[in-house]
Amino acid sequence: MSDPVSLTTEHPGQVASATPPAPGRSSRLSDRWLTVAFTSPALLLLLAMSVFPLLWALYLSFTDYSATRGGPAHFVGFENYTAILTSAQVHQRALTTLIYVVGAVTLQTVLGFAIAYLISRRTHGRGLLTTLFLVPMMLSPVVVGLFWRFMLDAQFGVINSMLGSLGLEQVEWLTRQRTALISLIVVDTWQWTPFIMLIALAGLTAVPKYLYEAAAIDRASEWFRFRTITLPLVWPLLLIAVLFRAIEAFRLFDLVYILTSGGPGVSTETLSFHVYKVAFLGFNTGTASAYGILMVLVVLVLTQLYLRYLNKLKED
């Protein structure tokens, strides 16, 4: 029998092996089963709350089922999908959504990055500034919508009041076709620019200092440093922020509901708002399910393309 002391001294890394082996576990408690046991509650929750409803919606999308009318769900094949894809109304809402997503996300990215860049260059009060900028993001979209609705009111709103004091004419922010969508973009930008700013700030902070020091030794200009060091290193992170914001903006509902109700007419009705009307005004559950599935597919396909671009960017 070997001496346990000498073993410990010479091979400190093997102390554990010197202790007597744990009593043998039942074969039922193998690593595999332990893994399954620990992950299954989360998996079951995921199945119940996400996967099952998705499959259920997928099934309903091939039927003429209506939640209020009840009765059996008749199989209608791809009729719901055909109706949606060929509907002029849907095309109009898709265009509105596209303009909104591109407008809002572009504005938020430019502003968010600019603010982050300016904050990152400050040495004093950086934390306080960041916290202040983050406040809009913490508010509920419904609350944001309500107070912007008051601010943008043509008669009693503070925005028109300020314009009036500057001698400018009143603007119908929420009731004219041209201004209503712009108002939505502005309000969304006010609320979500901080999100882009936060991600961009994280990226900017992570850029190694020695790169700037090396550039400074080479007497590189400010613009050159920004173009060749800052932007390329922050770009992938910024693109991820853009992806998140684009997905969020694509399914915009609450601000539209509170600020314009889709009006004037249907000029600010987004796809999500239209789905809501199909689902809860007409209670055409089958059609609404197909509409939802198509929206998920669009997001999935675009996200995949985007991620591939990101991966390529990483490899390059």
């Binding site: 009318r69 004219r176 076709q177 009006g263 007419g265 000029s267 009307k277 005004l281």
Partner: peptide, 23 residues
């Protein structure tokens, strides 16, 4: 009629569009 909610939505959005110069 059972289709009331959709009928009134169509009328609301179109009259609102006419009143606000969108149609």
């Amino acid at each position: 009629v059972p289709e009331y909610a959709r009928l009134v939505d169509i009328e609301n959005t179109n009259v609102n569009a006419a009143l606000n110069g969108a149609k």
